[in-house]
């Protein structure tokens, strides 16, 4: 039996805040090893959907299937244990921690030392600590932040913080990474760097779902694009198909 092809399946998801429908009957599939981009005007419900997938919001109706398993209603802190990690649109780097510590926190769900073991600093804790540190250093190298491990998160420029968040999300070996506007606020060369990193992730077999406004970037990296508008799925297809879709053009440029 082959493994299910879909890494993530969003099935008829609805989300309402009071009377406002933020998501209406949204369905799509993210295939294993692909990069899927969600685009759409502001307020289209893109971040809301990411929040539903990661358990920050609960879907009003519909299901989220991860590797064929229904994960709707999961608590946010359980999501990472399944192998889903994410970054945030408005940076959520831990400001008072060094870059290295930031990435080390990302390994939280892959380590198990308990409260009392940490108080006593047992051999197991020491061993785990060393592994976590090495892995975090490796990740900092991957996102081109080697040498900045001791700088506090707050002192890094925006571009570095974005890549720091990426490293923090990757350090736990996730199967699926959700990136919320990975290149917003970045200049051209930083955007290109981020694009290279994301393509490298795909090469290594990771599945990526991202939200982004920068069209050049989206067209460059994504295999599949999902367009949302006012909480509804407007279109889905390859970059070329989306570029020529009348409905998408209408939604973006007005009739």
């Amino acid at each position: 039996m082959k493994r299910a092809k879909a890494m993530l399946e969003v099935a008829n998801v609805n989300k309402s805040f009071g009377g406002i429908m933020a998501l209406m009957d949204v369905s799509f599939r993210v295939d294993r090893g692909t990069i899927t981009a969600m685009i759409g005007p502001n307020g289209a419900g893109k971040t809301t959907l990411l929040n539903v997938i990661t358990g920050i919001y609960m879907a009003s109706a519909g299901e989220i299937l991860f590797e064929g398993k229904n994960i709707s209603g999961i608590r946010p802190h359980q999501v990472s244990y399944l192998g889903i990690s994410r970054t945030f649109q408005n940076l959520q780097v831990f400001q008072n921690m060094s870059a290295l510590e930031n990435v080390m926190v990302g390994s939280h769900c892959r380590t198990s030392a308990g409260f009392i073991a940490c108080l006593a600093r047992t051999l197991k804790v020491k061993r785990e600590e060393k592994e976590v540190r090495n892995r975090a250093m490796e990740m900092l190298g991957f996102v081109n932040l080697a040498g900045k491990q001791n700088q506090p998160g707050s002192s890094l420029p925006c571009g570095d913080q974005k890549r720091l968040e990426l490293a923090r999300a990757l350090v736990s070996h996730p199967k699926l990474v959700l990136l919320d506007e990975p290149v917003s606020g970045l200049n051209n060369s930083e955007t290109e760097e981020m694009g290279d990193l994301i393509l490298k992730l795909k090469e290594s077999g990771m599945t990526v779902l991202l939200v982004e406004h920068d069209m050049n970037f989206v067209m460059r990296v994504s295999d599949v694009i999902v367009v949302l508008n006012y909480g509804e799925k407007l279109a889905q297809g390859s970059p070329a198909e989306i570029q020529n879709d009348d409905m998408v053009i209408a939604a973006y440029l007005g009739d």
Partner: peptide, 12 residues
């Protein structure tokens, strides 16, 4: 620093 991010890292 950030409860939301901590939660996402698997911290209860």
């Amino acid at each position: 620093d950030s409860e939301v991010a901590a939660n996402t890292m698997g911290i209860n």
